[in-house]
Design a binder for these strands. Sequence first.
DNA 1: CAAGAATGTGAGACTCAGTATCATTCGAGT
DNA 2: ACTCGAATGATACTGAGTCTCACATTCTTG
Lengths: 221, 221
Amino acid sequence: MVVKGTTSRQARRPGAEPGLRERKRSATQQRIAEAAARLATDQGIAETTVDEIATAAGIGRATFFRYFDSKELAIATGLSDAGAYVLAGVLADVPARLGPLDAVRAAYARLGEDFEAYRPMFLEQAQLSRSSPAMLAWTLYLYVDWEVAIAEAVASRFTDLRPGDPRPRMLGAHTMTAARLACDEWVADAGRGDLPALIQQYLAASPTSTPTSPTSPQGES
Amino acid sequence: MVVKGTTSRQARRPGAEPGLRERKRSATQQRIAEAAARLATDQGIAETTVDEIATAAGIGRATFFRYFDSKELAIATGLSDAGAYVLAGVLADVPARLGPLDAVRAAYARLGEDFEAYRPMFLEQAQLSRSSPAMLAWTLYLYVDWEVAIAEAVASRFTDLRPGDPRPRMLGAHTMTAARLACDEWVADAGRGDLPALIQQYLAASPTSTPTSPTSPQGES
DNA sequence: CAAGAATGTGAGACTCAGTATCATTCGAGT
DNA sequence: ACTCGAATGATACTGAGTCTCACATTCTTG
């Protein structure tokens, strides 16, 4: 759902490699998202028009809307391409013996290792995502895609998984929620705090960690 | 954040009852949301203009945007006022001995009792919330308010709650996620299934129900 | 390689969402 | 009653998002 659907009535057989048309399409998609994110980061969202983004991406205005439903969505996509989507990829490299939740925590820990290098860029993007109601709304919309990606990435770690099992999707949502709330708190603190640690704290705060049980703070970075 | 903030520099002392001005304001807010939801339900979202909503609510066009940031937000608010916000209210009436998660499950069970009466209306609203990317984005945006409301409603059920404890917010998000995903599945099934039961299933699928541990099905409907 | 079908593209026109301004009206407190 | 701050509505304006159509590009089939 990240790429706006093509009108392809001309179905491609599943096994074949993507043709020139599809490669061009995803390349254009990426150029637009990158241009949108860069312009919005530089000049602000309101000051960036779709015309500018389209020109910067080397396409026409009408074409822009064939790729993204809204300006905010293009920006949010460009911001996040460098961000949370990689989590699904990292998840694949985490030891298979780890359970779903532990795998997520390990993946975040891995990502947190070179967090400091990206801190300023990350803060800028996190602030931009929250800078207006419309921007936040479309960011939340994108999170759904990430939830699905994470759900697919962890699904194999569930044993006795029945079709339609709610657990992978719920874990995907839980993961994104932890990231979102941790980011909220981090941004509210002007990006001074330790975001990876915050994420781990939120991840640990599962709904079944009943108050009577100690809910050990889990202070690992 | 449901009501768009007033510019009130003339602070009202916290104890006093709301004056005519504030009562009028929330009444107008509600009239707009209701008119927006009704028109959108009747004619569709794209076919409903802000002008129509404003006229139906008996206000001017410019005033509309002093109450809502976007058309979709007004519609989503109108749709949800009849829906999930009541959950926070029901939560207060649930026996105090229940823990946070059990309280949520009990509250949903209570709401599910007269679900059948509202099934058609509920389905219509759920479909409308998912009818377009923009509508879904703004619906997700509203869910954040509900998360906060639920978090506040369950906070007292956590023992040893430190300020800034992530658990209430995470539970609020968990609750809304369960409702959202259950609704997705329910809508995909054209509203034929048992929504309350679905919600309970999703609620039970907590991230710590590790696959190695039996993950007791918790089959109470 | 040729030709036709399917699809992607850009230009321009159009509707309407969302913002800003300003004169007017309304509510709260004296 | 009087005054100040806030809410309102009319108006005008920018720009998002949609639509259509002519044209270009890619895919397919022979």
